[in-house]
């Protein structure tokens, strides 16, 4: 008797599942198997207290907003900046390149700053120049000349540090991201700012 009951309820469950599975297809511009959804890419993420997307976004936003207010940029002559290294001094795998990329994108979009290729992109840049000039494959008039690359006026550099503490079930992480803008010719720091973030998690 019991077994029969169980099997009937399993049957019902299977039927219910197969019925509900069909509903999503066809009637809307979504083909979905159930548990995957697109979410708000700007939503506040607090799944774990490791460095996350919200931290990246808020740091990039705070830094770029602060930098466009600096004196050298307000002056309005759109200085040329290059991104140097942001050192990761935490023991978490944080891709600081991805943070500086966001900062650079926002600054470029604001129109207040121009950027020169950084060291990482240098090889691609010189390779391209060399190919145009040395391969003999390109039309003379369209060849980009060697020796016209512009030297940056300022260098953007910084670091990210963290303090992690655990006590019992509570884990507290404090991140500090500092960034500075250095005049390459005279070594003067023209602007610097910090953004700190505290994340605490309890079990």
């Amino acid at each position: 008797m019991k077994i029969k009951h169980v099997s009937i309820s399993i049957l019902a469950l299977v039927a219910a599942l197969s019925l509900s599975g069909c509903e999503t297809t066809g009637s809307s511009p979504e083909v979905s198997g159930g548990n995957v959804k697109y979410g708000d890419s700007k939503a506040v993420e607090t799944l774990t207290n490791e460095f996350g997307s919200t931290d990246l976004q808020t740091i990039a936003e705070a830094m770029s907003r602060s930098m466009v207010q600096s004196r050298v940029i307000i002056a309005g002559n759109r200085p040329l900046v290059t991104v140097s290294e942001v050192k990761n001094k935490t023991s978490e795998y944080i891709d600081t390149k991805s943070i500086t990329d966001s900062i650079r994108a926002q600054l470029l979009k604001s129109g207040a700053v121009r950027f020169a290729v950084d060291i990482d992109a240098m090889k691609t840049q010189t390779d391209e120049l060399m190919r145009q000039n040395n391969s003999g494959l390109y039309k003379k008039t369209t060849q980009k000349k060697v020796g016209n690359m512009q030297g940056a006026d300022y260098r953007l550099e910084g670091n990210i540090t963290s303090i992690v503490k655990r006590a019992g079930d509570v884990k507290d992480v404090y991140y500090k991201f500092s960034l500075q803008l250095v005049d390459i010719e005279n070594g003067v720091i023209e602007w610097a700012d910090e953004k700190d973030i505290r994340k605490t998690s309890g079990r």
């Binding site: 708000d40 700007k42 939503a43 506040v44 919200t54 976004q57 808020t58 936003e61 979009k109």
Partner: peptide
């Protein structure tokens, strides 16, 4: 004038 900002708490 700008993309959606990140939500902040």
């Amino acid at each position: 004038a700008w993309d959606d900002e990140a939500w902040k708490t």
